[in-house]
Amino acid sequence: MFRLTVTGIVTGMLLVWFRRSVVAGSLVVAAMVLAMATGDLWVRAEAHGHVHGVADVPAAPVALVLGAEVYPDGNPSPFLAARLEIARQLLAAGKVKAILVSGDHIAWGYNEPGAMFQWLVDRGVPSQRIVLDHAGFDTYDSCARAKEVFGVTSAIVVTQSYHIDRAVALCRRLGVQASGVGDDTVRIYTEPWRNSVVRERGAVVKALADVVSGRDPVFLGPHEPGVGAALASH
């Protein structure tokens, strides 16, 4: 009898633990779903009416190109090259007067802004029109530094279409009157595109948390005159 009683108690405790775990897990999942839905609604509302094509986007002094993967040989990935091509077109069309390339250069051997600069110069963009931000470690940092470090108050943000609402929303919330142009040409890379779309669901939650916390970018630093000089060179 004693063994049966102990077994029953242990079984009962395990059932209680299991039920509580299921409830706790369900609450966590529900909270995550709610956070993603809230973040998605927020970025869509902030970006509404501010996303355009190259031909109809309102002119602005600066194109802010957000960084993406650079290959070990120094060449931009197709996703990044597509963003840079949009910026080149905007400059050629007179939509912008300068291009701010913002990306990750946290390691000596990995330099997104440098690769972006070289790609543009190789395709005829005057070097004096290009400004490099070496501390654009994520979208929030790129937008915050554009405003606080480079003095950008109005810009056309350039990225892929799955990312453009979040980019515009963050820049506008951080004080940059931003419009956006999103690239769709790299949809042909089906798996990377699909993976990026999935990651974006979590990224909107982080974006909302960053805005609510009002955090500083990883590196803020003093004012840099590069954008002003690039605009003056026009």
Rank of each mutant, 00 (worst) to 15 (best):
G182W: 11
D138Q: 15
A169H: 00
G180D: 11
A81C: 02
G109N: 08
G74S: 05
V181D: 05
L14M: 13
G136K: 06
S196A: 05
D165H: 03
E148I: 13
Q160D: 13
T11Q: 11
L120P: 07
F137H: 07
L27E: 09
R166S: 02
A82G: 12
H50E: 08
T153N: 09
Y71N: 07
P225D: 07
W42I: 08
A47D: 01
A167S: 15
S77V: 01
M36D: 05
V70Q: 05
E69W: 12
I99Q: 09
A59Q: 11
W42Y: 15
I156P: 00
A167M: 14
C171E: 00
Y162V: 01
R172S: 10
S142L: 15
R123T: 04
Q160S: 14
A155D: 06
A178D: 03
D56N: 15
G136H: 10
V149T: 03
V218W: 07
V29Q: 14
P113V: 04
R129F: 07
V227N: 02
C143H: 02
T190W: 01
R123I: 05
L120R: 02
I164D: 00
A229H: 06
A68K: 04
M36G: 13
R19G: 15
G180I: 10
A59S: 09
D184G: 04
R201K: 11
N75A: 10
R173I: 01
P217Q: 15
R201S: 03
G109M: 06
G74L: 01
H48F: 14
L100D: 06
S127N: 10
S179V: 08
P78C: 03
H105W: 09
S127R: 15
Q160M: 08
V57L: 07
E200L: 13
A107P: 05
G53P: 10
Y71A: 04
V29I: 15
S154T: 10
L208S: 02
P61T: 09
V186A: 01
V211N: 00
C143D: 02
G8W: 07
A115G: 08
S161M: 14
S213V: 12
R173F: 00
P217K: 11
F219L: 11
D122P: 03
E191V: 04
G12C: 12
F2N: 12
T139N: 09
D73A: 07
F137N: 08
Y140V: 01
W193Q: 00
P192H: 02
R83Q: 11
V6R: 06
L132V: 14
A232H: 06
A146L: 03
A107D: 12
